[in-house]
Nucleic acid binder design. Structure first.
Lengths: 242, 242
DNA sequence: TACTTAATGGTCATGTTGACTATAAACAGG
DNA sequence: CCTGTTTATAGTCAACATGACCATTAAGTA
């Protein structure tokens, strides 16, 4: 085939998006899943997603589907950092027809159950801890594994971790994000030193210190800083993940 | 829209692949481009690529197109490490119709001009230095820039750089790969120390040392080692790239 | 033979990391 | 009200990695 696109030479495919949206809840990594209502894989859990419409980019479609299917607030969905993971295009990944799917990942702070928002498709959406997830529809188990791996390595050299935290957070919360995603224990003073030594990673909230909540000495509050990457990176210890 | 794929709800798209294949030649980063023969963008340079066929995955299509369009040897193409970059899906990226393109990157050692292989589409393929590249068809300039950035950061934490080198190479050649891609000068003894200290990055070729070629003391030859990632990474100096 | 070039072998000060100890500020319970 | 528990925060120290150099070796070349 030549450089040009010959309009007679292509077979039409369906193009969809799939989303692996993570949160940290109670020390465990959770992913947002929906229960399928129809064949194939009726009753199975699946990643939220759907068709890209004629005038949408994949990313636009991903935001729309996320809002429609999970009832996350419009505002949150619009502001969310969506990262394109990769595209899955094996010919038989959907038994009915040829479907090429662009997968995205996102991180959100701990949120109420999506169903709480009200009716519609969101009623079938739930957060599941990763080890509760067994059978997933289509090749979604592969997508989920790829997404988890991507998130883990992104934490090493980007400031992405703050995406799992509320707008103001303690260094302990930030550390537990790393520990949960990497499934490792980190030394608290060292973690603190590293984070504070990285310019722009976090910045102290002016006058505040969390008081009432937990036991123990109240922790200072921080906000995400302007930096997006970590130089040098915060590498996970040798045998982590999984 | 619900979790399921409703067969009546989707618009068919064309799905293509595009390839950004790099090599290092004469101290400059080169990319493999083809001259378009038809509208739109007739006469412009473009990344090699083409339609995904009904029974192909995107990666299979990428290998096929690369072999067809550039005349690189089947063997090389089959063994090549193809990395999926990302998918480009803006609605108007192709003026004629809705085309979603999955982009790949690859690295090859310095090779003869593709046209040398013989006829066909390969006749329109050429290696161009990155700063000779001006106008590219479609959104290929964006894809190329993304690919360059990806390659640059991949060099930091993977052993990918050996992919630019012939099967046996000197540390000087390896270093010049880094210097070319990052567009920075590196200290030779320090680079050497770092590479040799990373287990599995390179291994010495048993009895050999390059003699005749250049002036100066002959350099030892190395082969790629079994490692795929660099721990800790080999970070580029602050203000590099571009 | 002297000069140039590039590879290779070092040193040294600095910065970062991992392991660990110590102190401070809250709460819980008797 | 005192004591122990919990968590945050501060600091120390050795091992290691890095950047900036200098020195030596082994080729080709004038």
């Amino acid at each position: 085939m030549t450089a040009g696109y010959d309009p007679y030479a292509f077979e039409p495919f369906a193009v969809t998006v799939d989303l692996a949206v993570f949160t940290v809840r109670g020390g465990a990594l959770h992913v947002l899943l929906i229960r399928r209502g129809q064949q194939p894989y009726a009753g199975a859990w699946a990643l939220p997603g759907g068709f890209v419409l004629p005038r949408e980019s994949a990313e636009t479609a991903a935001r729309r589907e996320l809002a429609e299917e999970t009832g996350l607030s419009e505002q949150l969905v619009a502001a969310l950092h969506l990262e394109q993971l990769r595209t899955y295009s094996e010919p038989d990944r959907d038994p009915r027809m040829r479907v090429v799917s662009v997968a995205f990942t996102a991180l959100v702070p701990d949120l109420p159950e999506p169903a709480a928002e009200g009716g519609g498709d969101a009623a079938h959406a739930r957060w599941l801890a990763l080890d509760e997830v067994t059978e997933l529809a289509f090749d979604h188990a592969v997508i989920l594994a790829d997404a988890r791996e991507r998130i883990g390595s992104k934490l090493e050299y980007t400031c992405l971790a703050t995406g799992f935290c509320p707008p103001e957070f303690t260094l302990g919360e930030l550390q537990s994000v790393y520990e949960t995603v990497w499934n490792t224990a980190l030394d608290r003073p060292n973690f603190r030193r590293k984070v504070l030594a990285t310019p722009g990673f976090v910045e102290a909230v002016p006058g505040a210190a969390r008081l009432t909540g937990g036991r123990g000495k109240p922790a200072a509050l921080y906000r995400p800083g302007p930096a997006t990457t970590l130089h040098p990176p915060l590498l996970r210890p040798e045998g982590s993940s999984r």
